[in-house]
Nucleic acid binder design. Structure first.
Lengths: 238, 238
DNA sequence: CGGTTCGTTGATCTATCTCAATTAATGTGG
DNA sequence: CCACATTAATTGAGATAGATCAACGAACCG
């Protein structure tokens, strides 16, 4: 098996969506890979792109800018995620995608997606399914930002990222990479940097997490999940 | 042409997605219709449903409840929208759907969707496309709730609903039906009722809107769009 | 006509923001 | 390997958008 495509295969495996032929089809859908440093725009609002991406390694995010210059992160992209699928059917990017850490992206031309929908209905449905889970995650973010306190919001996104990385085998003993600055957390949760900082101190003070040097350790999963009202149903893992 | 299915045909027409055969396929995908009074749950979180719905008339919303009992509306459903498509590929409802006004829903069994994906690739893509626009709308809601003031948030959802109803021919001279209580607005924007009330007074005071008796009139579209930083790109109309 | 929902108003409170510094990391050129 | 620039984290103090609490009026409804 091609090592690089591992995260996505693992995810689809979990869906029991893969026949041998499907696996072959999957390995052949991407044409090349691109490496990005941290904090680089991978795609920009307004772009008309002719391909979508499969994140092979690193963590990226979707974000939009407000007229007033405020930034809102609307979701994370983790290894195994196909992003920009919408560019396949929608004309123009309505948001941007940026690397948060160094990232490797496999490029999937739209033509390959077309072939996919024609040749492997099962895989096409799997890709569709993924985009529906993504939509469910956006809904959860609306709830998070709309109705939870700062403390809860931050706990919630930590739980989410932990679960999603776990699915693709990127958790090592309750620890994940966390290349996400306090400013990023603020942009993801609709909070100011200062308040993020103080809320993090509260999470630490309650012995729920350790966060340093870009490494997040969850010391008390149950406590953190309760703090963030986290219920992973929306991720629709199987 | 079947009158009832008009809104959806109109929407798909705009996509130039419809051949004659497609139109026939579309009319035959729903098995029956159901009428709901206002404020009724059409589907509930946790349900395992075997069909999805096409809203024929009325306005509905998606919502989730917080552990603490707070409600967050995550999106509106307008005539022509297929909702619960996710139930086709995801096991269980992760949110609820409720009528806001009296609603008529055409029921589309999953089996019909399967047939659709097999027989009319073009229609299947149109349905997929719709679900991607929906996802874009959720992202916009994250931005709205995360980074805009109360005044801006309310202006924004008014613009969104106006545009979406316009697409399906439900605007009459800058006026739309608005069966949305102040409490609902609060739940959609992550605000308290009291603050919604005061923000509405500000919108009225600035001569942007008239809102009474369940009718919203937009007196100054440009002003309202500017107030809400509304840019309809995310709706991907053509 | 009493009950219920919806909208409105006033007063008070607080979670979170903004402004302004300071310290700690991290990176970079010489 | 050091000096300096830059980014990220932290702290304090004061300001405010929006929440909460508590009434009350108006519309609707069986």
């Amino acid at each position: 098996m091609n090592e690089d495509i591992n995260p996505m295969l693992r995810k689809l495996d979990a869906l029991q969506a893969l026949s041998d032929g499907d696996q072959f089809a999957l390995k052949s859908i991407y044409s090349r890979t691109i490496d990005y440093e941290a904090h680089i725009d991978i795609a920009r609002e307004g772009d008309r792109v002719g391909e979508c991406g499969l994140l092979m390694s690193g963590i990226a995010c979707r974000y939009s800018m407000t007229t007033e210059g405020k930034r809102q992160i609307t979701g994370f992209v983790v290894p195994g995620d196909i992003f920009d699928v919408q560019s396949f059917l929608l004309d123009v990017m309505d948001h941007s995608i940026a690397s948060m850490s160094a990232c490797t992206v496999a490029v999937i031309p739209h033509t390959a997606l077309v072939a996919l929908t024609e040749n492997s209905g099962r895989l096409a449905l799997a890709v569709w399914r993924e985009s529906l889970v993504e939509a469910a995650t956006f809904r959860e973010w609306v709830v998070n930002v709309g109705r939870r306190s700062a403390y809860q919001r931050i706990a919630h996104i930590m739980c989410e990222l932990y679960c999603r990385l776990e699915t693709v085998g990127l958790v090592e003993g309750s620890t994940i990479r966390w290349p996400i600055t306090q400013s990023d957390i603020g942009d993801a949760c609709g909070l100011s940097i200062v308040h993020v900082n103080r809320s993090l101190q509260a999470l630490r003070g309650n012995d729920l997490i350790v966060l340093q040097n870009g490494i997040l350790t969850i010391k008390d999963w149950d406590g953190l999940a309760e703090a963030g009202e986290f219920d992973g149903t929306f991720l629709h893992r199987q």
